[in-house]
Computed example of a mutant assay.
Amino acid sequence: MTMLPRFHLAVPVDDLDAARRFYGELIGCAQGRSSDRWIDWNLHGHQFVTHLAPSRREEQAHNPVDGHDVPIPHFGLLLTIPEFHKLADRFREAGVAFVIEPYLRFEGLPGEQWTMFLLDPAGNALEFKAFADDSQVFAV
């Protein structure tokens, strides 16, 4: 069987139960293997792991993009536009605070995309975005 390239990403969290609620229940990732120190998640076919690391991290850095302060580091997922809006609605209904509210970035320009930023319960910055035209993902 040939597998498409997949990424593996591990992030620190300070509460595995909060990670289960956020990544499993709210975002809808299927849980894989786990221990009392980590949980594997299926993030749209990619292996995403939350590792228990209770120490606090440094203050979040930011870079300006399209008039917003984008948190770095961050990671995220490219979704379809309907998936993007459905997830944004789920975040709103759950009372999740956005770092950058969902909006249409670079409107009418190469790379036009819907984007939103938020923090998980451990303070990891997440970006979710959606392109009307996937050929524009790497447009210059």
Rank of each mutant, 00 (worst) to 15 (best):
G95C: 12
L109W: 00
E93M: 07
W114V: 03
P110R: 05
T115N: 12
A94W: 04
L87K: 06
D120Y: 12
L119C: 13
V96S: 00
R90C: 03
D120Q: 14
F91A: 09
A88T: 00
V99Y: 04
D89S: 04
E83R: 05
T115I: 01
R105Y: 04
H85F: 14
W114Y: 14
R92P: 02
R105D: 10
T115A: 15
L119K: 10
E93C: 05
R105V: 09
E83L: 08
V99M: 02
F98Q: 04
V99D: 11
R105G: 10
E101V: 01
L87Q: 13
D89M: 09
I100S: 13
K86C: 13
T115L: 10
K86G: 15
L118H: 04
I100E: 12
F91Y: 10
E112G: 04
K86A: 15
L104R: 15
Q113A: 14
A97C: 00
D120F: 14
L118N: 05
L104I: 01
L119D: 12
M116H: 10
F91K: 05
E107T: 02
F91N: 11
G111W: 10
P102D: 03
Q113D: 03
P110L: 08
E107A: 14
K86S: 15
E93F: 04
E93Q: 15
V99W: 10
G111S: 06
E107L: 01
L118S: 05
W114P: 01
L118Y: 11
W114K: 09
W114H: 15
R105W: 04
G111A: 14
A97L: 02
L87H: 10
G95E: 09
